[in-house]
Design a protein around this nucleic acid. Structure first.
Lengths: 125, 125
DNA sequence: CTACCTGCAAAAGGTTTGCATAGCC
DNA sequence: GGCTATGCAAACCTTTTGCAGGTAG
């Protein structure tokens, strides 16, 4: 992948943000220092990075995709009330995927698990 | 919920289609016999049914939502090549969700698991 | 009668894309 | 110099919504 200043700052921004930013979050964040950067470029590069496995793209029901600098196997829980995204460590799909391959002939290549509910804060209110 | 002819045929259509139809699939299917039905009505009612738990809404990354007449706990695998959706039976989240509640205070209310990969047919090609 | 429903069409929201220009190697 | 990336804006796709008229209870 060819170097560009934009790629550099977009990737850096994802790494810095701990809160699972959307493409638009990144765009807004970068606009401060780089008023000319375009939303199209942010989308293009985030998707490229995700394709290459450099970052992880989280697809969420009825909401913007989010991006995550953590690429090890993990999943997400999202609060239906405040929208906060938290990480979950889980690695319990091996057995299931083996069974699926044997029974259905389906070869799993990636997985998306999102748990929806209420986070601690919103439950307490 | 108040009766309407449209609700009746939309619900019937979901029950008849075994292939996890999108809202637009249902719309196209119903148009043959009911040229006046509107896409808005199809969306409105599918969402209402899903809210009431009468059908199940499957949210898929970068694609239209699909609807499923099976409402028991199950998940889906989707072929990246042909787009086919197959059912998976799985009920292994109880332990994980209990841990999450204890550790993070997050109360899971619903879950979305989608496995992406290659189905038998597409692997054979 | 009244509340809820429909069809229609327009709007919304998120994301992608075509094009001309600019930048890396 | 050639090829790829960018900025901009328009297009795109799916889904939602406002409105005026219709229908169930």
């Amino acid at each position: 992948m060819k170097y560009s200043k934009q790629k550099e700052i977009i990737l850096k921004a994802v790494m810095e943000q701990k809160c699972h930013p959307t493409a638009n979050d990144i765009y807004t964040y970068l606009r401060n220092e780089n008023p000319n950067i375009s939303l199209g470029t942010v989308y293009r590069n985030l998707n490229r990075f995700a394709e290459k496995g450099m970052i992880y793209k989280i697809c969420i029901a009825n909401a913007s995709d989010r991006f995550d600098s953590t690429i090890s196997e993990h999943y997400h829980m999202i609060c239906d009330k405040c929208g906060n995204v938290e990480d979950i460590e889980f690695s319990g799909f091996d057995k299931l995927e083996k069974e699926i391959l044997e029974k259905n002939g389906f070869e799993v290549q990636s997985r998306s698990l999102v748990l929806y509910g209420l986070c601690k804060n919103c439950r307490d209110i």
